[in-house]
Amino acid sequence: MGLPTHEPRGAQLSMSAETAGRPGPAPHASAAALVPYVLGLADDALVLGHRLSEWSGRGPTLEEDIALSNLALDLIGQARLCYAYAGEIEGRGRDEDALAYWRDEHAYRNLLLLEQPNGDFAMTMVRHLLYAAFLDPYFKALSASADARLAEIGAKAAKEMAYHLRHAAEWVIRLGDGTEESRARTAAALEELWMYTGEMFEMEAGETALSAQGIAVDRGTIKPAWEATLARVLAEASLARPADRWMQRGGRAGQHSEHLGRLLAEMQVLHRAHPGASW
């Protein structure tokens, strides 16, 4: 074992180095509002990252298998940064694993869109397009947050999400304008997932207060960019924008679809089977 190590970026994150001496929350922010907000960002990233990791070994090509893992690693990295920050502000001694593995589904605050099963490759890419088209401009805006730590997280994640958006968009275009089968699958995926897109733009009371303080981003302000991106991509993909409809919601309040329970059961089972153990 004498060779130099070349750790890939997913594994390079050193939490102690990351969190030691880091800027804390902006003084006027209340932990009561900030913690749930940051947990929401963390849960979003972890749940989607977990879903994407399920593609490992199952991608349509080796290249895409690797690409999907890259997307997953970026998101898991974002989740870890957010969990660490949330735990610090909360001040109850909960680290990233305590937050990820010991909260039940009613405590999870992720969007419903992200916990949906992967389905086929079209479903996965459509889900990613819908989300990345939001998260890319969102994180760009967050990088100007009055909270220095969130600004840092936003800046790093924005760079990553720019690539996520390009990748998902290129695939949706190819699947929409590929074969009749790929078009049908992609259109079906859009129809199925559209009802989850409204939730991305909702603000809760605490989040609205944070936005007023320049800490969180007003999600509504992201809508025009999101619509414009989708219009461009769907047009190039020869796909129709689904009709407006009733939007599903509840994720931020811990009211999830039936899928999250199963996802968390699998994700948390081993960690919970050995309370207090180190891994």
């Binding site: 939490m15 070994g57 991608g59 298998d65 690797i66 893992s69 898991i76 969990y83 694993d97 960690h271």
Partner: peptide
């Protein structure tokens, strides 16, 4: 070889191990 290791991806018992194993299995694809 991605399969036997991939079998524990969704159950990795810490976030650090989750990321580490995902990166490793990805390396194998590479």
């Amino acid at each position: 070889g991605m399969q036997p290791e991939g079998n524990w991806l969704t159950r990795a018992p810490s976030l650090r191990r989750k990321a580490g194993l995902l990166a490793k299995v990805q390396d194998e694809a590479g």
